[in-house]
Design a protein around this nucleic acid. Structure first.
Lengths: 159, 159
DNA sequence: TATTGTTATACTCTATAACTATA
DNA sequence: TATAGTTATAGAGTATAACAATA
């Protein structure tokens, strides 16, 4: 029986995607789903799903954005935001005013209640982040963030 | 106006999750969804969704597994597999025989057609993998895979 | 014509709870 | 009792196509 190191070397040189576990795409898909599941419990404390919470934070960071602006920032289609915005309005976490210079569009803004929700959930999110990056040196985390950002760029530019 | 490097340094020392973009959890969620979307077009060539294809590969790599065995390997609930298995059976990509020593369970096996589908999709998956890891040194990719594996372990062990 | 937001629809991924048949 | 597989249901994520209102 060969050692694990040798087997890995054999895989690396084979060039073929024989082992699912060695595919970044496969791992990202699994880990992404896992993160959504875990974050669900965390943001549930303020009545939001993970994606909804991230939109709330984006609105806080980009006041007076339109929904189309937000869609660009979040990397999703405009239509994806409609139920999210509705949820945030229902909970009173954001306000939505007509943009008077362009009455097709809105100006979104986080509310006081929205800020409170963010403040309440932030320590939970930070705790989750520590759990995710447990055992990572600061440099490991930095490199991982850069890698993930690079991948997103590779996948969004030039299909 | 401070430089980007200085702003980054300020963020790192703040300790707070003020910037969504610096959260590994957030990036993983976005990238994971993006990967699913992109892989959808690729595996569509053999009539499968990304998750379905990965189960097909697992069956090929672990002949005579039961559905419960597979659920463990894939990191999902048994119930999640039911429609996947049904799809693979419908396409004739796997066979399912009763386990005679335990008639509650099945023995799953990839079929010739299933192998052909894997062979057809593999170069496409490899091409996607190259696109994902574009600009990555071999070491970068290795580190990324290790990091993702570590994260999955952190998130599955000890809620 | 082009854009903003909306609707209707669909598809991917996942889980929980309760059921059946076997063990 | 416990396990293998199933069903029904739910809820997370996402998109496309077509529409009204406005630019």
């Amino acid at each position: 029986m060969r050692s694990a190191a040798l087997k890995t070397a054999a895989r690396e040189t084979s060039g073929a995607a024989r082992n699912l576990e060695d595919l970044v795409g496969y791992r990202l898909r699994r880990v992404g789903a896992l993160v959504i599941k875990e974050l669900g419990g965390i943001f549930g404390a303020v009545g939001l799903a993970p994606g909804q919470f991230s939109i709330l934070m984006l609105i806080g960071a980009h006041p007076h954005s339109s929904q189309s602006d937000l869609a660009l920032l979040a990397g999703v289609d405009r239509s994806t935001l409609v139920p999210v915005i509705e949820r945030l309005l229902t909970l009173g976490y954001i306000t939505r005013l007509q943009n008077e210079s362009d009455r097709r569009a809105y100006r979104l803004q986080i509310s006081t209640a929205g800020r409170r929700a963010v403040e309440k959930a932030t320590p939970l999110a930070e705790s989750f982040e520590r759990r995710v990056t447990k055992g990572f040196a600061a440099d490991d985390k930095r490199r991982l963030l850069i890698a993930l950002q690079q991948i997103e760029e590779s996948l969004t530019s030039a299909g």
